[in-house]
Write a protein that binds this DNA or RNA. Structure first.
Lengths: 327, 327
DNA sequence: AACATTTTCGCAAACGTTTGCGGTAGGTTT
DNA sequence: AAACCTACCGCAAACGTTTGCGAAAATGTT
């Protein structure tokens, strides 16, 4: 079964290709009678415009690229879902690529997106990305890039982030309301700017009378190990702060293993998308940083970029404290 | 900054477009000297071939479509990750679309994929999809479709699934090894074929002396409610079977609320991708149905389709019991 | 009836590639 | 010196659209 094209329709109807093209997009130059004929035949012949030809001709791919370390993540999947929603609604499609925390893969992925002449790129860089040259090249080609979550330290680029410092500060503030003495704070990879910001926000707000032990876990298992280790001390910390869902899940397993009662024996607070805190009983109190809302924000920023706005901005998503029963 | 094309390179070098094209793909007709010149200039000019033009000319998009109810899911994200990996490795890109459990959106998504002349489609249909016409149209256009997880009941289509009946049977068998009397089994939407298969596999294998109560939960919260309700009976069930991660998380919260000891007071087994069972302590014993492995299987089936194999098949992924501490 | 205007349509170029085929230059064989 | 290879390269068509411009046909105006 060969594809039906404008040409084929034009031949059957005995009109020109341009007439068919215009008729199908309701161009005023074409008579109603001709339009009707064309539209009908197009329907019975199951005409589907060839996107590649259109993109080539119009130099507009209606395609966005999305670059992410990994899709299966506590946070990104909801971000992706939000972006995809808006894309479809606005007539765009979405190409998704994983970099797997490998800057080399990231670079080739960017090349793929360039070759597909995407209209814009959403990017969450890997922690080890140092060379911003590939991204710069996108910019040179006039392809807007909106960074999200893990963003580079560059000045003039578009970034949408959760309010990292404010979120951590909010969590610290919640702890300040309680009568805790010793808090164990587990953060992520200390090389990432997101970690630095959260450390700053947390330690600046936590009242100085509280003893705070800051540790770093690169993944869930390490968070489990750290927590287990600190639960073996005497006295044990009476509160636990987790920077992310990944860390929370590790820490929570350690607490379950120790058989501690929450919040009587240990209080917990985390920064989260909201899903994991509700897996446990009591529900964990958390500062909400919505991947879904961040996606919406990123998309709207992308749209303003495409409408010609050239000045870059760093947008932050406000966050709120969601009370669980862990404090 | 205007894009560099073959034409531009050819003009600078004073050769023809075809020579440039051939030089860049190392065609034997072109002399080494010319090749060197072309390749060098292409590099300094940052030449990036226009994928749209190539696809139009070669009628081959090197693009796959992926249709899924929702990205943020316990299972699909790892499936997607696997597909994306293989795609990148094989030089394909991936367009991902969510249908949001709406058959209408699903149909328009398929149209988008057709218009993009994708080389193939991976599809997980929504539970309410009745009309297979849009999928049939793909087939008519020569675009192979590989269904996964939620597959239609059609005979001649390509399907890759986890071994649903076998997985449930494996779980029942594990329960048979223990001295339980009353088991509460929670399944998902009873209208889905995946549910029916698992029910059959489970109840056929469970030894008849065991009292089995079968219930249905459409989402996590309902699983929580059902479990809570059954934990209020006397005597309480001494074992719990969950059909999926979504149900497990709901049930587990109920068990935490009741403060029951696992496995002393209640035993638990589930069918899972493997992530959630390890969130708890003790780890939940589960029958593994890997989204990642299913993705790999689906991709390899897709490749055989593209290489001309026209006969359809239903492939099932074998599953294994992973021992936790909940039995 | 001659002219002006409007409606309706077609021509052809362009987007950036790929590729079959033909052509030229130089060298090798008779 | 004629004939034949071989190595190298260019011409031009094609993929399926969009769109500026001009032309023909229909309609309206004096």
């Amino acid at each position: 079964m060969t594809n039906t094209t404008l040409k084929k329709i034009s031949e059957v109807l005995g009109v020109s290709i341009s007439t068919v093209s215009r008729a199908l997009k309701n161009h005023p130059d074409i008579s109603e009678k001709t339009k009707a004929k064309v539209v009908e035949l197009a329907q019975t012949l199951d005409y589907e415009p060839n996107a590649n030809a259109i993109h080539l001709r119009t130099n507009n791919s209606n395609l966005f690229g999305l670059l992410v370390p990994t899709i299966s993540n506590f946070f990104y999947d909801s971000f992706i879902a939000a972006i995809e929603e808006d894309c479809r609604q606005q007539g765009y499609s979405l190409i998704i690529l994983q970099s797997g925390d490998d800057p080399l893969v990231e670079a080739t992925n960017l090349k793929i997106l360039r070759q597909n002449r995407v209209s814009g790129v959403f990017a969450c860089i890997t922690p080890s990305t140092k060379n911003m040259q590939p991204f710069q090249k996108m910019y040179d080609m006039g392809i807007p890039v909106v960074f999200f979550d893990k963003v580079p330290d560059l000045a003039n680029c578009n970034r949408v982030c959760v309010a990292d410092a404010a979120a951590a500060s909010l969590a610290a503030n919640a702890l300040n309301q309680t009568a805790i003495k010793r808090v164990l704070a587990i953060f992520g990879n200390p090389a990432m700017s997101i970690t630095k910001k959260r450390i700053l926000g947390f330690s600046h707000t936590l009242q100085s009378s509280t003893l705070c032990h800051i540790t770093y876990a690169h993944h869930s298992e390490e968070a489990l190990a750290i927590t287990t280790q600190h639960l073996a001390t005497d006295p044990i910390p009476d509160a636990l702060f987790c920077m992310s869902d990944e860390i929370l899940t590790g820490a929570m397993k350690a607490i379950q293993m120790a058989g501690l009662l929450i919040p009587q024996q240990i209080k917990i607070i985390t920064i989260s998308n909201g899903f994991f805190p509700n897996l446990y009983h009591p529900s964990i109190t958390y500062v909400e940083t919505s991947g879904y809302r961040l996606g919406k924000l990123a998309f709207s920023k992308m749209m303003t970029c495409l409408s010609g706005d050239t000045n870059t901005a760093e947008l932050t998503l406000p966050c709120t404290l969601v009370q669980g029963g862990s404090i």
